[in-house]
């Protein structure tokens, strides 16, 4: 299995601002990469360039030592041996479920017993054996989704692309489909690229998360890594919950901050810290109640089921998110310790 490489990939639709600007990325072999970013950040454009529906205006896409696309030429999608789950599922309404799933086999000239066997196998993997003769119109959203997935399974694609596949499903179905995707990835061994704007989905599924914003690639890392050590305000704000504070910190402080440094910066000793202003990401789970902490005013306290989400106001007016196991009265002043932070 070869490695998928995006090499200085750019796409300009002629609107002045490039949709994708100089994205370079090597996807781990047989990896599961989540492309994460807000609407309009260019992640779908990257996916469509990998599939071959769009041609880059600069840079190239390589698979192993094969060049798939560059600004001059582009291997058409039908010759790439890739598969894709579309956001709209893209099931052909005039074919039955089995015909939909088996179509890539038809195109490859496989028919008869081999065709039936492989289609049945793919359908059983998504637990749709009993629906083989139905039309897509007679299926629910989740079932259509699984048909689309089975269509990817039936051949052995090198790369499987998923374009916000869970966007049209309800919360309950999403969870079970996430499981299906994970199992699918383990079984197929294909490289998978998963486009989403839901960071929780990305973290749960992927081996690597790539964050994009305004056409640029900001950071690529494993989920735990990107959660603990995000690069820059955009990534920090996008991944997980947390507050970004502007604090005065000494230059020598490093990036992982502890209560000693933070306490000083927050003015625990009565005066604000020293040094230039920096952005510090503080996760809610890093904020605890503690009697030797800094007094903060409770702005709001919202019940979320397993706990309360609290918004606190620092003495200088900046806001901080925290969790609490008990309800706090709005307006109350409570001492809190900030046990850790990450300088962005």
């Amino acid at each position: 299995m070869a490695q998928l490489i995006l090499n200085h990939l750019s796409k300009d639709f002629g609107s002045g601002r490039p949709a994708v600007a100089d994205v370079s990325l090597a996807v781990r072999k047989q990896g599961f990469l989540a492309l994460l970013g807000p609407s309009g950040c260019g992640k779908t454009t990257v996916l469509r360039m990998i599939a071959g529906f769009d041609k880059p205006t600069d840079g190239s896409i390589e698979f192993g030592d094969r060049r798939l696309s560059d600004a001059a030429r582009s291997l058409p999608p039908e010759k790439r041996n890739m598969a894709m789950v579309f956001q709209s599922y893209a099931l052909w309404p005039h074919m039955t479920v089995a015909e939909n799933v088996g179509y890539p086999l038809n195109v490859r000239g496989i028919s008869g017993e081999a065709w039936r066997k492989r289609v049945a196998e793919a359908l059983s993997l998504v637990k749709l054996e009993d629906f083989a003769d139905r039309r897509p119109a007679a299926l629910s959203g989740g079932q259509r989704q699984r048909v689309a997935l089975a269509r990817c399974l039936v051949t052995e694609p090198d790369v499987v692309l998923l374009d916000e596949p869970l966007a049209n499903l309800d919360q309950h179905l999403r969870k079970s489909m996430e499981e299906t995707f994970r199992a699918f990835h383990e079984r197929s061994g294909a490289t998978m690229i998963y486009v989403t704007h839901d960071q929780a989905e990305a973290m749960a599924l992927a081996t690597d998360v790539a964050v994009m914003s305004e056409g640029k690639l900001l950071q690529v890392a494993a989920p735990a890594e990107i959660y603990a050590r995000p690069e820059g305000r955009v990534v920090g704000g996008l991944i997980g919950r947390g507050s970004i504070l502007r604090l005065k910190l000494p230059d020598a402080a490093g990036r992982a901050l502890d209560w000693l440094l933070l306490g000083a910066a927050l003015g625990a000793g009565g005066q604000a810290g020293e040094g230039p202003l920096s952005d510090v990401l503080v996760r809610p789970e890093q904020v605890h109640r503690g009697t030797d902490g800094i007094s903060m005013r409770v702005v709001s306290c919202i019940f979320e089921g397993e706990r309360f989400a609290v918004t606190l106001s620092l003495p200088d007016g900046q806001q901080l998110k925290a969790y609490s196991s008990a309800a706090l009265g709005e307006g109350a002043t409570v001492p809190f310790i900030v046990s850790g932070g990450w300088r962005l």
Binding site: P76, S88, A90, W92
Partner: peptide
Amino acid sequence: MDPSLEEAARLAGAG
């Protein structure tokens, strides 16, 4: 027609 219907066929390998 949803353009992805044709795109899906392309990825399936159909010329």
